[in-house]
Each structure stands twice: as C-alpha cells, then as structure tokens.
Computed example of a mutant assay.
Amino acid sequence: MSDRVNVEISGGVAEVRLSRPEKRNALDPAMFGAIIEAGTALRDDRSVRAVVLSAEGPDFCAGLDRSSFRDLARGDRPSATVDLPPSDGPAKATGQRAVHVWRELEVPVIAAVQGHALGGGLQLTLGADIRLVAPDARLAVLEILWGLVPDMTGTQVLPELVGRDVATELTLTGRVVSGTEAVTLGLATRTAEDPRAEALSLARQIATRNPEAVRWAVRLLGVAGRVDAAAGFAAEQDAMAELIGSPNQAEAVAARFEGREPAFGM
C-alpha cells in the first residue's frame, strides 16, 4: 500500500488511515490513487466485515493539496494524472472514484472525523455509511471559495443527507460548521469525543453479526429511495429468502437461545 494510506485488518475490521499528517492529509494525486487502491482491495476481500476510515494527525483531511489550486487556475487537473484501471461503475473521474469506491463495499464504512474535513476531505466522508465526528471538528463545502464546485460526488450525495436547501447554502457559501452542528444538519451521524476509538468499537460490534445479513442490510439501505417501491420491497424478500435457514442465520438463533457469542462462517 502507498505511504499515503495505511490499511490494517484485525478481527474482520479494516482500518484505512490517511497518512499524510504533515500536510493535514491533503489530497494529491498519490493520495487519490492510494485511497482508490485501498477501497478496491477491501471491496474484494470477503474476510472484511466492517471498515473504519480515519486519519493520522489532528486533521481528517484539509481537502485538495493547496499546490493543486495553482495547477487548476492554469487549466490543469492533477487528479487526472493518476494511473488507474478503467472504471465500470458510475464514477469515472478520479476524485469521484475516491469517494464512490466506499459505497461499492457491501460492508459498512464508518468515517471517524477529527479536526478539519474541508472540501474534498468532507466529500470523502460522504462515501461512508456512518460518520462519527468530534464536537469541535470543522467541516465545510469549501470549493466555492476557490471558484469551483464539489466534484467528488458531493453535489449528488449532499442533498440526500441534509436536504436540497441546506446543501445549497453550504455549497454556495463555503460556511464552516462544527461537528455538533454537522450532526444537527444531518451531515454527520453523531459526535464522539474520540471518533476513531468510537468508530473502531462500533465496527467491532458490527463484525460480530451475521456477515451475510450485514451485507444484505448495507445493500438494501444503499438503494433505498433510488429504486421504486416495488423493486425495494422485492429486494427485501430476496434477502429473506437467502437468509432464512442459512447456516449463519441458524447460528445466530442458536447463539441467542444458548446465551453465547455466535461463531459465523464467511
């Protein structure tokens, strides 16, 4: 793995840590490539049952590396220089893929946010299913201050979380919000004094559940509101048809009745 991102897997929990603290984990081409590489590898790893997306140092991610803005002003796009295999998903641009790759995982992704999550750093958290933030974290859709718009899936995902009106205000003003306000707005799930420790604890708890049920739940919740009711209801029934009576579901029932921890297969 690149020196920009560290990945550790233990007990079915993968922790992906942005590792450029001296630059506030700012996004440069190497960071984009490492994030996509990490997400792609975990997407194909069936031993992983939950993922924590965190960062080293006091900040989660300060956004695009400041040196890149001079390149953008000249008409260059540094992220386009990242050498990646072609994408067969909806996200084609490098920045979009760095966020959307986390939505392609069939296990929950929990973002642990401390310090600054600005611009692309904020958008990176939008790829997670759950966002735990420090109360004093600083989050902003900052692109407008650089004469740009969010282009890492932000314009499409943000309204889903906070509503179109709030998304519009945040996008057009670049206003910085605290972690506490982010929760109030729906931009974050809840606050935690130590987001990383809380995220790891939550991930370990999820990793003790039937992995097939977890994958189905993530899949079903991921399409909620994006398919019509008939398709969503049918998908629920597909899930139940596959889960009921399966070895892991039977183990969940037996463990509950016997008052012990379940021992699930992959």
Rank of each mutant, 00 (worst) to 15 (best):
V133C: 00
A134V: 15
P135N: 09
D136T: 15
D136V: 05
A137Y: 11
R138V: 12
L139Q: 02
E143G: 00
I144N: 03
I144V: 14
I144R: 02
V149C: 13
V149Q: 09
T153F: 08
T155A: 08
Q156L: 06
V157I: 07
V157Q: 04
L158V: 14
L158Q: 04
P159G: 11
P159D: 02
P159L: 02
P159Y: 06
P159I: 03
E160W: 04
V162F: 00
R164I: 04
D165H: 05
D165N: 11
V166F: 14
V166H: 10
T168V: 12
E169L: 02
T171F: 05
G174H: 01
V176W: 09
V177R: 00
V177E: 00
S178K: 01
T180G: 04
T180Y: 01
T180D: 08
T180R: 13
E181R: 00
A182K: 01
T184C: 03
G186S: 05
A188I: 00
T191W: 01
T191N: 04
T191A: 03
A192F: 08
E193I: 07
E193N: 07
E193C: 05
P195V: 03
P195A: 02
R196L: 09
A197H: 02
A197P: 13
E198D: 04
E198A: 05
A199K: 03
A199W: 04
L200I: 02
L200P: 14
R204Y: 03
R204D: 08
R204K: 03
R204V: 06
Q205G: 08
R209W: 11
R209G: 08
N210G: 13
P211S: 11
A213P: 14
A213E: 10
V214T: 09
W216Y: 08
V218G: 11
R219V: 11
R219K: 06
L220F: 10
G222C: 04
V227K: 03
D228T: 07
A230M: 09
A231R: 08
A231G: 12
A231Y: 12
G232D: 12
F233W: 15
A234D: 12
E236D: 10
M240W: 14
M240C: 07
A241E: 10
A241Q: 15
G245F: 07
S246K: 06
Q249W: 05
E251V: 04
